[in-house]
Amino acid sequence: MPVEVPTTADLLQVVREVWPGDDLLDAVDIAADGGGAILLGPGTHVLYRPLNLPSYVRLVGAGTGATSIRAGADMEYLIGVDDHASSVSVEKLRIECAGKARTGVRIVPAPRDPANGLDYGVTSPDPRHRMFDVEVYDAAHSGVVLGEHARGTRLDHVLVRRAGTVGFHCGMADSYLTNCEATVVAGPSYSAAAAFWIGSVNTVYANCKGWWGRGSGWRVRGSRNRFVACESQDTAWHGWYVEYDLNTFTACVADSAGFAASGGIGGVDGFYFAGAGATTATGCLAFNRSKSAKSQRHGFNIPAEMLAIELDGTERFWGNQGRDNAGLLVNVRG
């Protein structure tokens, strides 16, 4: 028997306008009946418990300079998605954690269980959540958390400012982050803090920037990801700390790792590759912003196998440049 696929009109049958002073949580309950769009007018909505969004609901503000959702009490996260939810979208608003919410946006759906009717939708095995034109401020720990089962997620123009430990915690697969950036103010240690903590697989990061924080700009602990025109800048620790293999880096930049003004320490590198049996870095750039204050030790600190000649005559480390590093532009270990 053919499966009935809901149309766009069916999914967006409920449209509720909410202004400051109205009950936002009640509007979510209304929109949950078949999916809908919650249009938030200008102003600040203060929440005293997390806001969980069900399937097919769009939470849309009037713009990041007009509409805010603010944490009014301590909570684990400010905005989340229901377990097994599909196609939730958060758009055009500012999320103010105010140091009270541990996480700004938490997209950690439960695993699929089709045998028991718990699926993400009739058209795809992925939940396919979206964030567009969103700002997240002052999360106590993480600005945005994307869990292992948040497959097919797309983020564009999402900005995280002053996260406590991690800007974007990415554990999902088959997703896309474009034009995103984050700053991190603290963290329990240099290695724990990161603007982008990458545990994802088979995900694309394009034109994203991690900067100004006690930890690294990027800590990569996932494989089969592609990083295109991404940047670290003014980080206290390594700009890029790459622990896992099978990743591709194209036209990426490390600017002033170990930067003193962000609490930097000596002996850190623009790019540090812990192991790279099958990693490729092409056309990347590593430099210090100042000739007089050379905080970044090596531009690229790589294992010898990254320079090994492959059977087709190519190397995995090619066309990389830089200037004003305190040590060698390329330091080859072992």
Rank of each mutant, 00 (worst) to 15 (best):
G21M: 10
D22R: 03
L24N: 03
D26I: 08
D26R: 14
A27D: 04
A27S: 14
A27K: 00
V28M: 02
D29P: 05
I30W: 09
A32L: 06
G36D: 06
A37K: 11
A37L: 11
I38R: 02
I38H: 05
L40H: 02
G41C: 06
P42E: 08
G43E: 03
L47E: 01
P50A: 10
P50C: 07
L51N: 05
L51P: 06
N52C: 07
N52V: 07
L53E: 00
L53H: 00
P54E: 00
S55W: 01
Y56I: 08
Y56C: 14
Y56A: 14
V57N: 01
R58E: 08
T64Y: 01
T67P: 07
T67N: 08
S68A: 11
R70M: 07
A73F: 02
M75L: 13
E76S: 13
G80Y: 00
G80E: 04
V81Y: 00
V81L: 04
V81I: 09
V81H: 03
D83S: 12
H84A: 10
A85V: 06
A85H: 01
S86V: 06
S87M: 14
V88D: 04
S89A: 15
S89N: 14
L93N: 09
L93I: 12
E96M: 14
A98I: 11
G99V: 12
A101N: 03
R102M: 15
R102F: 12
T103I: 15
T103K: 14
G104F: 01
V105M: 13
V105T: 13
V105G: 09
R106P: 01
I107M: 14
I107L: 15
V108K: 09
V108N: 10
P109S: 07
P109N: 10
A110L: 14
A110F: 09
P111E: 11
D113L: 08
A115D: 12
N116W: 12
G117F: 00
Y120T: 05
Y120F: 15
G121T: 00
V122Y: 01
T123D: 13
P125S: 11
P125K: 07
D126V: 02
P127W: 06
H129F: 14
R130N: 14
